[in-house]
Design a protein around this nucleic acid. Structure first.
Length: 453
RNA sequence: GUGGCUGUAGCUUAAUCGGUAGAGCAUCAGAUUGUGGUUCUGAGGGUUGGGGGUUCGAGUCCCCUCAGCCACCCCA
């Protein structure tokens, strides 16, 4: 009999979340929502499953290969979304007449990619996208950088670098060298510059594309321009040699950098990096990548860019846009490694102990009154020994425990024990628990205890 | 998907040339029944990720498989 039992397990790259982990996830999601909303982005959602033809051929061959696909019970060829941008494109092509432009939306949802797993890389993971559709104004490019900056700050991360670049600059420089049609292999090689040395990159460039050694060297010299953002722009301008598209890209970068500074982003938090080339093929303007300074090797935790024509494959109407995506799971993996996570297991602030077995109705009444005043409270379900109840309260991460027995009820008060300090406070118990609620609300949450989930 | 490394109770881990698994933490229960996170005692929990093979005998050797990590690739 027992040998017939099924081993409980999850698929490679798919995970369960315990309450302590889920609390962290929800906290970041809530923060993202609040930041996106503060800029006027509105929520949307789309189905997890789409017709296969909607999804294929929109990213790269690689994303097609990684997509989960199957035939549904009705014989339809379907695929699971591998990002939120392609569904957004379909969504806009379908609804833009009802929406109008500029259309600002955020979308927080899981996506699926059947690729090999890694630290911070899963087959089911959550993306927190925000985009502005239908505007070519650089104001929207500026806003994306400001949102990313604000988002990470609100999450509680200050030690990060937001790197930006512009595809027009890269493409323009390649065009000057007559290598425009070699952009993909060259940019792919270039992208490895952060991981390896210039020689290796040059070698790959000449091997994977038609570029000569001289051309490869030129590209690297262009990309390795150093200095402050302003100095880099000035130097690039000279190197552009009057090439129109390149100069346009440089001007765009200048605007974005100046704009973000005007918006209050510290100068050193935004770095112009001509070597970042990544991002999906559909990016055409500004591109963004965000690295945690303490853990750059985990990759970008928030990336995005501008695209000229989101909906081209679905409709004649051209819709430009710009946006970025926070990689929630990668960020959490990084935060866990960096010890930035706290270990609360309960969303409730107060545990009402079931102390006197004859006073259940009083405890229930107190809980209801407090909840009606907006406090999250939990009643311990059994009249166990107080020590055990307090142990539970401590383990779950409650901030306070309410203790009330005959002595307290006779004096029309209760005992509130601060679980982080061990101190007890006597608080009056009126009919509607008004004083108690006020007491709890006026005592700011104690800093999270050290024990991490 | 390709190549490499790893896999012992919930977690961290011990086991000498192959001789049938030990511990710490955690959990649960107690220590003359109103106070936890720092004591003491006890208990549960492992067919050593799973399957097969070699052997008198395998956690230890071989093969397959699953999962994790690293590199490539790609990306959040």
């Amino acid at each position: 009999m027992s040998s017939d039992r099924i081993t409980p397990r999850t698929l490679k790259g798919f995970r369960d979340f315990l309450p302590a982990a889920m609390m962290q996830r929800e906290q970041i999601i809530d923060t993202a929502k609040q930041v996106y909303r503060s800029f006027g982005y509105a929520p949307i959602d789309t189905p997890a499953l789409e017709y296969l033809e909607i999804l294929t051929g929109k990213g790269s061959d690689e994303t097609d290969r990684q997509m989960y696909r199957f035939e549904d019970a009705g014989g339809r060829q379907v695929g699971m979304r591998f990002d939120l941008t392609v569904p957004l494109a379909r969504y806009c092509a379908q609804h833009i007449n009802e929406l109008g432009t500029p259309f600002k939306r955020y979308h927080i949802a899981p996506v699926w990619r059947g690729e090999n797993t890694h630290r911070g890389r899963y087959r089911e993971f959550m993306q927190c996208d925000f985009d502005t559709i239908g505007s070519q104004s650089l104001v929207t490019d500026i806003e994306v950088a400001v949102v990313i900056h604000e988002l990470l700050n609100q999450i509680g991360i200050s030690d990060f670098t937001l790197r930006i670049n512009n595809r027009q600059v890269l493409n323009g420089l390649l065009e000057q060298l007559g290598l425009r049609d070699q952009a993909t292999p060259i940019l792919r090689a270039l992208d490895k510059l952060a991981k390896t040395d210039a020689e290796t990159v040059m070698e790959e460039m000449t091997r994977q594309s038609t570029a000569t050694t001289e051309q490869a060297a030129k590209i690297l010299s262009l990309v390795q321009v150093t200095g402050t953002n302003g100095e880099i722009l000035d130097q690039l301008e000279k190197l552009a040699d009057g090439h129109e598209a390149t100069l346009e890209g440089i001007e765009a970068l200048r605007h974005v950098i100046e704009g973000t500074q005007a918006a209050g982003v510290a100068q050193d938090a935004l770095v112009l990096d001509v070597s970042i080339a990544r991002g999906l093929d559909y990016y055409t303007g500004t591109i963004y990548e965000t690295f945690l300074n303490a853990l750059p090797q985990i990759g970008s935790v928030c990336s995005g860019g501008r695209y000229d024509n989101l909906t081209g494959v679905y409709t004649k109407q051209e819709l430009p846009g710009v946006g970025a995506s926070l990689g929630l799971d990668r960020l959490l993996a990084a935060m866990e490694e960096l010890g930035l996570l706290q270990g609360h297991r309960t969303p409730a602030k107060l545990l009402v102990t079931f102390f006197d077995r004859d006073r259940l109705s009083d405890y229930l009444k107190i809980c209801t009154a407090l909840r009606r005043r907006g406090l999250a409270v939990e009643l311990f379900p059994e009249p166990k020994k107080l020590g055990q109840q307090l142990k539970y309260a401590n383990r779950q991460g409650f901030e306070y425990a309410l203790i009330a027995g005959t002595q307290e009820f006779e004096g029309q008060r209760c005992q509130i024990k601060d679980l982080s300090t061990g101190e007890s406070h006597n608080v009056d118990l009126d009919e509607q628990c008004e004083q108690l609620a006020n007491w709890l609300q006026s005592h700011s949450p104690t800093p999270a205890s050290e024990h991490a989930g």
